[in-house]
Amino acid sequence: MRLTQGCFSFLPDLTDQQIRAQVQYAIDRGWAVNIEFTDDPHPRNTYWEMWGLPVFDVRDAAAVMMDLDACRKVYGNRYIRVSAFDASAGWESLRLSFIVTRPAHEPGFSLRRDEGPGRVVRYSTHSYAAERPEGERYAGA
């Protein structure tokens, strides 16, 4: 199962050249760019770990791509995404977010159905990867 989350998630994985073009697009608009990673990509897990600090004052996407390469060397077996934030209104607004690296094996999610009183039906998702301890969710998969 392929995780679909953020921009471009229904497309084939972006090449580094395409990632660089999107990062440059964000930089040209004055957006702060950051790199995040996780091994729990549940849709409600919006707090991924940050790789370093957001990049505010760069003019060239090469700096972000160097950080991305460093993150991939350490966490290449996890999900890594690039996000861009716009602070022009006086607060941070997410403008762009997309996954740039995925584990080789994505086990996916199960859908759970719970029936309550009357006609109440609730659905929830559960990540198969979360059954393993943090840091080992994609090891050897």
Rank of each mutant, 00 (worst) to 15 (best):
W48H: 10
E49N: 15
E49A: 15
E49G: 08
E49W: 15
E49Y: 15
M50P: 09
M50F: 11
M50G: 11
W51M: 13
W51S: 10
W51T: 09
W51E: 12
G52S: 08
G52I: 10
L53A: 14
L53Q: 15
L53N: 13
L53D: 14
P54Y: 06
P54L: 07
V55A: 10
V55H: 12
F56Y: 15
F56Q: 15
F56N: 15
F56G: 09
D57L: 14
D57T: 15
D57G: 11
D57I: 12
V58D: 10
V58G: 04
V58C: 13
R59N: 14
R59P: 04
R59D: 13
R59T: 15
A61C: 12
A61T: 12
A61K: 12
A61V: 14
A61D: 08
A61I: 12
A62H: 13
A62F: 10
A62I: 12
A63C: 11
A63N: 11
A63K: 13
A63Y: 13
V64F: 05
V64D: 04
V64M: 07
M65R: 11
M65T: 10
M65D: 12
M65Q: 13
M65H: 11
M65S: 09
M66T: 14
M66K: 14
M66G: 06
D67K: 13
L68G: 02
L68R: 08
L68H: 07
L68W: 06
D69W: 09
D69R: 14
D69C: 02
D69A: 10
A70D: 11
A70M: 08
A70C: 04
A70V: 00
A70T: 04
A70E: 12
A70Q: 12
C71K: 09
R72P: 00
V74Q: 12
V74M: 11
Y75S: 01
N77I: 03
N77T: 08
R78P: 00
R78A: 00
R78M: 02
R78N: 02
R78H: 04
R78C: 01
Y79K: 10
Y79W: 13
Y79V: 02
I80H: 07
I80S: 03
I80Y: 04
I80W: 03
I80T: 06
I80P: 05
R81N: 06
V82C: 05
V82Q: 03
S83H: 01
S83F: 00
A84T: 02
F85N: 03
F85R: 07
F85H: 07
A87I: 03
A87W: 10
A87M: 07
S88W: 01
S88M: 01
S88H: 05
A89Q: 06
A89R: 08
A89I: 04
G90Q: 02
W91D: 06
W91I: 08
W91S: 08
E92R: 04
E92S: 04
E92M: 04
S93T: 06
S93P: 00
S93K: 10
L94T: 05
L94V: 08
R95S: 07
R95A: 09
L96T: 07
L96H: 04
L96C: 07
S97G: 08
S97I: 09
S97C: 11
S97D: 09
S97P: 02
F98H: 11
F98W: 09
I99V: 15
I99A: 02
T101Y: 02
T101E: 12
T101C: 11
T101N: 14
T101M: 08
